[in-house]
Simulated assay, not measured.
Amino acid sequence: MAEQKKAKVVTVGLEDLQTPFQNSACKSKEGVRVTVIGMIVNIILTIIKIAAGFIGNSAALIADGVHSLSDLLSDFVVIFSIRISAKPEDETHNYGHKKIETLASVIVGLMLLFAGISILYEGAVTIYEFTQGVPIEKPAMIAFYVALISIACKELLYQYTHRVAKKLGSDMIEVNAWHHRTDAFSSVGVAAGIGVAILLGDQWAIIDPIMAVLLALYILYIAFKIIYNSINDLMEASLDPEVNDEIKSVILNCGGVLNVHSLKTRKLGSSKAIDVHIMVDEDLTVKEASVIQKDIEKCLKERFGDDTYVIVKIEPFLDRKAEREKHILDGL
């Protein structure tokens, strides 16, 4: 019986070790699928918007097409990163490869930054030339219709990608979702600018590049925010205070824990890493304390995902107040 029981324990342990990688593989497939769909849409929109921009005399739509091109490039980065991050731990990467997701977020943010700078420059040059007497040709209706199509496609793509990102807990896919939304917002501005220019005549054609500049500033804001948050994660920033408080609550409610201290947390891509010291009754046996430790690991993984890295260190609970009182009494 003892041998059978021992064999059963070993089997359960192996399953627990395999679960995070199996979950990562499932996440990888779903993450790649949503990104490939986005990539196909971006290829089509990039071609259509740039072509319609030239045909319809819209600098804003051409700039918007460049933004879609940056989305396309970011899709390739995301797919590559998802494949790498799904790999399990090895001898040279003891914590797995999930940090590649954070690095990819920085790269996507930089792409967004360069796209914003490019749009800003082109719009500013057009506005300057207009002030110097260079006329701006009124956009054609084809540019307006394409901008409307882009708004619908990119907003639907954002909603879909955002849902998948929340489901998988992936910051990298969430960043890519915002890449889609910024493209939708830029298309809103383009459509508004083109519509005003068409309705009010050539003298209002300046609205087109002005909208391009305003949207470029918004894109730059999003890019800086993405880059800042991603670099912060690369520098091992701790999780949000609310999450840390929730971790402590989960541990204390798990049972057998008398105190929690020295909690350290960080992000590993879409996963979380938790390192914590717990205090238990000093009269417990090593086996009993080990059971509490395993229960805490289970509780944390159930709450934050099977791919959460958990390190629990056990210490005997010491009642400092009782110790001080005992010391005073001994002195008397």
Rank of each mutant, 00 (worst) to 15 (best):
Q4Y: 09
G193S: 09
E323M: 14
L318I: 15
A165I: 10
G13E: 14
C26S: 14
K6Q: 14
I149D: 01
F130S: 12
L318Y: 02
I50L: 06
V108H: 07
T126C: 04
D319V: 11
E242W: 00
L300I: 03
R303D: 02
T19S: 10
K267D: 00
I44Q: 01
L61R: 05
A152F: 15
V188G: 05
F304Y: 14
R320F: 10
E129N: 15
F304S: 03
P316H: 10
S28P: 00
K321V: 13
V78N: 08
V257W: 06
G256F: 08
I62N: 01
K99L: 11
S74F: 09
F304R: 02
K99P: 01
L329D: 13
A25L: 14
L14K: 14
V175G: 14
G56V: 04
E15V: 03
E282N: 15
L332W: 12
M211F: 12
V66G: 10
L157R: 01
I251W: 07
V175T: 15
V12K: 13
E242S: 14
K287G: 03
I79Q: 07
V164H: 06
A140P: 00
V280T: 13
H180I: 00
E30T: 09
V276T: 07
H97E: 04
D330A: 12
L148F: 11
P209L: 03
E15H: 08
A177E: 08
D183R: 04
E302A: 10
E129P: 02
S105R: 10
D330S: 13
G96E: 01
L268N: 07
V190F: 02
Y158P: 07
T308E: 04
K154D: 08
E15D: 11
V188S: 07
E236L: 07
V196W: 06
S85M: 08
L156P: 03
A205S: 15
E89I: 00
L112A: 01
A140M: 13
E3A: 12
K287S: 14
P88L: 10
T92D: 12
S238R: 06
K98H: 12
E236P: 02
